[in-house]
Design a protein around this nucleic acid. Structure first.
Length: 879
DNA sequence: AAACTCACG
DNA sequence: ACGTACGTGAGTTTG
């Protein structure tokens, strides 16, 4: 096997990372996104290629031979944005810290150095890989020199690979001929002039036919089309100059030492420190604990597996102000309990013999009488330990979520790294891999025990700092008064679950099946062949190629067949109408009829999980199954709600807030006109239309009302004329006019929304009425698209988040009151602005009163919080 | 695993 | 000029 060298085009990879990926900033406000992206792609390629040598090439600012040859060269190039410029020294510092060789040479560009080292290495018989974002490098490809171009599509990075063959395949010319192409076409980003009137197509044709610019010039009369012929005749000199400029110099006088380019372990203590300073948390994972001085603290774990030892341990634990606990268990069995008294006393207690799960959970429950139990996830503890006082527990996951709701998980290793001075602990994955808890308990008790210890250790140690940060950020009240009590409320909802008629669900599914099969036949007939209607790819080919429907391309990978596209075609094509119906029915069958059927428990009820640490705004989410997206808008789908029923002797009471987000907007903005509107109107959209379009209330047309409603929604989503125009199928101009009229009508709204964006930019986050924060890093992005997204988020999150806060407060109060009053009714579902209560028939009146009082009284707004309430013998009827 | 589609607020 | 509504979760196909 020959040796391999990896050459990286420093600036171009940094550039790509900067423009293609979201920007990051650390606590010092330094921009670091591009550096982070650079490292990610570099390590990915390093792992794939495992080269013996590595070097990164950078341009210098001094003029190059190209400047001397051609004055305008790069003369008018756009200046680098400041956010990127400041990251150039940073990446160099990082590479140095990692002991990675950097090369640059006055008078030459990075390309030339890459080319030079590539040719030299090739001559030594090495394999060469060049990593760049710049297609110009393709001219260097050979059978031994691989050019790799990373591409980012929607935040996901893939890499295109080119040896000679791939260049030929994609561009129809050899790698050296890439230069000819570029010289003809020009390249505005490099200020290669090119010749007028020749684009990619013509240039390719010319080079395929003639091989070079010179040869084309010699056979000028054969050059087609005419325009290209004349252009080449007139600008031949320019083309030759361009060629010269575009040619990478592979023979620069670079002093290059393979010795210095040898790949060593990049995970040095210096690099670790720098990654920490830049807050590259995920990068820190890669570092070997041995190389990182400060994470080498050894934790000592003890096992306690005799009854008297456990008794003594719990007695000692009861004397502490706080203890860390963990309960590793499946729904029906406890495997191991972790108990941490302080950093020196960390215990695992495996279930076995006299130490049963019930016994240990009983001990934990009793322990809560005398100390505070700290856990990663209190709700999971509640499944086995029936605690009832939020004041006696601490939930590290919930606390960390409040401090940064944008994280994808809140595991013990993440929290240790972030809140315990960068402490690196093994993750669950590291300890158990994909082994189930049950299997680990049977076969790898040691590893399971370690996991239990870490799970108990981290929340115990991090409690202090997490609470301090909640205090500092003004979120202590949200934690104490909303989120922590909510853990108990959600646990209760999960335990109760909701009763579902399995048989009816089945027959509903079978009815759907009949119609689906009919439709399938019809569609195949209309298409003239059998194909998989569920495959957007196959469907796109049938509709837009075989049948030639208008519409054409839409997505990255092919034709879009989404409903909003098909809707437009449906009136004219029977097959489209059938496909839409087919889609609707298969969705209902697979996701709801079959999907829900599969998760009915032995008790005949569905027990969804309500996730408290998922959403960026503060809403809860529902999984396994998701009960927050049960159909309601279409009647056929809505029928599914008939299978959700209360148990014998109960009815459903369903209460939903009426336009809570708009009311929150009215309150937070303080716009008197909108507030007044809510005091008067029963139909806010109609009133909005009347005020915006200056017509009397009873003369508002249905179109005007629809438009006003869309604007109301748009405002809440972070208004943009484009978005509104899409929603209403009108031009952007018209949409902009609606928005302007709206802002004229409600003058404080605009100021309020602008203020949110301004505050967001200033602080880096926005807050709800109750102080919940959402960071909005996109607001500081130099990328227009990302920044615009940030602006919409800054406008929407405080509104959506405040509404989420309000209903959470209401849920807690309803739950606590029903409990205090000894009622047998129970909260079973929350759907963002709606609560569903399985109500004991004797308690209907009392529960109605509680619901109304607690929902309306959850927050004190300038407008009333209106609640619609219904009762029924199924969810369908209670809506 | 990612892309696409679609259900909800 | 860029190219979008805000927030979710799940099923299916495909590379």
């Amino acid at each position: 096997m020959s040796e391999k060298i990896l050459l990286i085009d420093g600036h171009s990879i940094l550039n790509r990372a900067f423009y293609g990926l979201p920007d990051l900033t650390n606590a010092e406000g330094r921009h670091t996104g591009a550096v982070y992206g650079f490292l990610n792609i570099m390590f990915r390629i390093l792992e794939e290629e495992k080269p013996e040598y590595l070097t990164v090439a950078f341009d210098l600012s001094a003029p190059t031979f190209r400047h001397k040859r051609y004055e305008a060269y790069k003369g008018t190039r756009k200046p680098m944005p400041e956010e990127l410029r400041e990251q150039v020294p940073l990446i160099k510092e990082m590479l140095s810290a990692m002991g990675i060789n950097i090369m640059s040479l006055e008078g030459y560009e990075a390309d030339d150095l890459l080319g030079t080292v590539a040719r030299r290495s090739e001559a030594k018989g090495m394999d060469v890989t060049i990593l760049s974002g710049d297609r110009d490098l393709l001219q260097l490809a050979t059978d031994k020199v691989l050019i790799r171009l990373p591409k980012t599509v929607r935040g996901k990075t893939t890499v295109e690979n080119y040896h000679t063959a791939e260049v030929l395949e994609k561009y129809q010319v050899t790698p050296p001929q890439i230069i000819e192409l570029k010289a003809l076409m020009g390249d505005s980003s490099d200020n290669i002039p090119g010749i007028p009137g020749v684009g990619e197509k013509t240039a390719t044709k010319m080079i395929v036919q003639f091989g070079s610019i010179e040869n084309a010039h010699e056979h000028l009369e054969e050059v087609k089309p005419n325009k290209a012929k004349e252009s080449l005749r007139e600008h031949y000199d320019l083309a030759q100059l361009s060629k010269e400029l575009a040619t990478i110099n592979t023979d620069s006088p670079l002093e290059f030492s393979y010795e210095k380019a040898k790949v060593e372990n990049p995970y040095t203590p210096e690099a670790y420190e720098l990654c920490k300073r830049l807050e590259f948390k995920n990068m820190l994972n890669r570092f070997d604990p041995a190389t990182t001085a400060d994470s080498s603290m050894e934790l000592e774990f003890f096992t306690c597996n005799d009854l008297s030892g456990v008794e003594a341990l719990f007695e000692k634990a009861a004397q502490k102000d706080q203890v860390g606990i963990s309960v590793l268990a499946d729904p029906d069995q406890v495997y191991t309990v972790g108990l941490v008294l302080d950093e020196k006393e960390i215990y695992q207690i495996p279930v076995g013999g006299l130490l049963t799960g019930d016994y240990l959970c009983g001990k934990l429950k009793a322990l809560a009488d005398s100390t505070v139990l700290c856990a990663m996830d209190i709700k999971s503890v509640l499944k086995h330990v029936s605690l009832d006082d939020p004041k006696k527990v601490f939930d590290a996951g919930v606390a960390a979520y409040l401090l940064n709701p944008l994280k994808s998980s809140y595991s013990h290793d993440d929290i240790a790294r972030e809140y315990l001075d960068g402490m690196m602990l093994p993750s669950k994955e590291d300890l158990l891999g994909k082994t189930s808890l049950k299997k680990a308990w049977e076969e790898e008790l040691e590893w399971l025990g370690n996991y239990a210890c870490y799970q108990a250790f981290v929340p115990c140690m991090a409690r202090k700092v997490l609470l301090e940060k909640l205090d500092e950020t003004g979120m202590r009240k949200v934690y104490d008064e909303i989120e922590l009590p909510l853990v108990f409320t959600l646990d209760s909802m999960e335990k109760w679950g909701i009763s579902v008629k399995g048989e009816e669900l089945k027959s509903y599914g079978e009815k759907l099946k009949v119609r689906i099969q009919e439709l399938e036949k019809t569609i195949w007939q209309e298409a003239g062949e059998e194909f998989n209607i569920n495959s957007p790819k196959q469907l796109g080919v049938i509709l837009f190629e075989k049948l030639g429907l208008p519409g054409g391309k839409k997505t990255k990978t092919g034709y879009s067949t989404a409903a909003d596209i098909l809707d437009k075609l449906a009136p004219d094509y029977a097959i489209v109408k059938d496909i839409l119906e087919y889609r609707q029915l298969t969705k209902l069958k697979s996701t709801y009829a079959d999907g829900l059927g599969n998760v009915i428990g032995e008790d005949g009820r569905i027990h969804s999980t309500f996730n408290q640490t998922i959403t960026a705004t503060g809403r809860i989410s529902s999984t396994d199954p998701n009960l927050q997206n049960i159909p309601v808008r279409m009647e056929l789908g809505r029928l599914i709600r008939k299978v959700f029923v209360p148990e014998e002797g109960f009815v459903f009471l369903d209460a939903d807030y009426s336009q809570i987000e708009l009311r929150v907007l009215a309150h937070m903005s303080g716009d008197e006109k909108l507030i007044q509107a809510y005091r008067e109107a029963e139909d806010i959209h109609r009133l909005t239309a009347s005020q915006v379009f200056h017509v009397p209330l009873d003369e508002v047309t249905s179109l005007q009302r629809r438009n006003a409603k869309a604007v109301n929604f748009g405002i809440v989503y972070g208004i943009s004329s484009f978005g509104l125009s899409q929603d209403l199928s009108i031009t952007r101009k018209e949409a902009a006019a609606y928005i302007e009229k709206y802002f004229e009508t409600y003058p404080k709204i605009k100021g309020f929304l602008d203020g949110l964006v301004k505050d967001g930019k200033e602080h880096g986050y926005v807050t709800t009425m109750f102080g919940r924060r959402r960071p909005v890093p996109e607001l500081r992005s130099s990328n227009f698209m990302q920044r615009s997204f940030g602006e919409r988020v800054a406008m929407n999150s405080p509104i959506q988040g405040t509404a989420a806060d309000i209903i959470k407060i209401a849920m807690n109060h309803v739950y606590e009151r029903m409990k205090k009053e000894g009622l047998r009714s129970r909260l079973v579902l929350q759907v963002h602005d709606e609560l569903l209560i399985e109500t004991k028939k004797e308690e209907i009146e009392e529960v109605s009163r509680i619901l109304e009082e607690e929902m309306k009284g959850a927050a004190d707004l300038a407008v009333e919080l209106d609640v619609d309430m219904h009762q029924g013998d199924s969810w369908y009827e209670a809506k």
